[in-house]
Design a protein around this nucleic acid. Sequence first.
DNA 1: GTCTATACATCGATAGAC
DNA 2: GTCTATCGATGTATAGAC
Lengths: 216, 216
Amino acid sequence: MTEAAPLDRRRRRRQETIEEVLDVAAEVMADQGVAGLTLGEVARRMGIRPPSLYGYFDGKNALYDALFERGWRELLAVMQAARAACAGTDLAADLLALETVFVRWAVEHPAFAPLMFWRPVPGFAPSPAAYAPAVELERLSRAFLAELRDGGLLAPDVDLDLVHRTQTAVISGVISQQLANAPEEPFETGAFTSTLPDVVAMWLAHHAGARNRPSD
Amino acid sequence: MTEAAPLDRRRRRRQETIEEVLDVAAEVMADQGVAGLTLGEVARRMGIRPPSLYGYFDGKNALYDALFERGWRELLAVMQAARAACAGTDLAADLLALETVFVRWAVEHPAFAPLMFWRPVPGFAPSPAAYAPAVELERLSRAFLAELRDGGLLAPDVDLDLVHRTQTAVISGVISQQLANAPEEPFETGAFTSTLPDVVAMWLAHHAGARNRPSD
DNA sequence: GTCTATACATCGATAGAC
DNA sequence: GTCTATCGATGTATAGAC
């Protein structure tokens, strides 16, 4: 009682501080860009000195790694919730809804998205642990593609690997163009995010089985 | 004779030095990433001191600006040459050929592409002059879209603005995914660049007029 | 254990000598 | 046109107070 409890409190407090560092670091990235993150600015906003941060993160790249993992973990949670909320009666509508959630999260988190989808930080490569939620989300995405195939929306003999690559390409294209050319536009009226229904429809039609083509 | 000639030589030599700075800066970006460019490294590789660079470029952002313009100017020249080489007898083949040239240049210039298509440098925004070749290339691209429409490959009442946005989105998506996930893969066998025929076909089919749909 | 204080190297940038 | 000298800011790391 006199030993375990304080240790837990100490650990919890340490974890809270770690979360605060990540919160502030995300704010700095939002203001200065991903590559504009500096430990000094994080420490300044927290009211501490830069060396104190080394008690929680082993340098700047470790902080990037934690931010990379947090971003993918949040996006994974959002996508899992959206997947669970799918009605299942209209797979095409579910597909567009899921892609909408994905793109919306990306453009509404412009501080995280470049770190997660591009490689803006020289010398930083995410660790396998930080990659884990991204891998899990890819597994989820591939499972939904199989559902689309089994539901008759994709051709029965479709190459799921090719389909997955074209899907990530067109979706990441919408995100990249919106973030690079008009990051201030909201999702609803964005010049590129507003093309998402078109893009999803063209992707689906291209990989559709014969029974779903307009001519049938 | 004793005045004009030396002045020309001086100007020419100065221009040669400027080009050398850009060459070396491009090498540094290729090695260290776009954000990893430093004036010290450029000066070191040129055998001069960092302050000497200020005689040619007004700071680091001006160097980025010149690199941004040079990249778009090169890409514009490549695209103009490809456009002139088009046979014109098969517009769909010409389209794929042009997009192939575009994507190939991007993935084969990984040092320039992020600077041109993303925003990896905090605090840097390209000047209107540096944007000029990019604007010219967009004009060229829109003109070709009108040709596709007049040639019957796109619907007669197609929204050229929307078509242009979806086109840039899907093409930049292929480039972004290839550069971010497998930058070392060559264009021919890249996991994402190899989907380019699929992506171009799905884009074209989506915006095609009725006479070009498979059912006709 | 956590923090402050401090030192060190490197970066972009400017001023002024030659 | 190039250099030295120098500045402020930054990332990294160590020493030592509490």
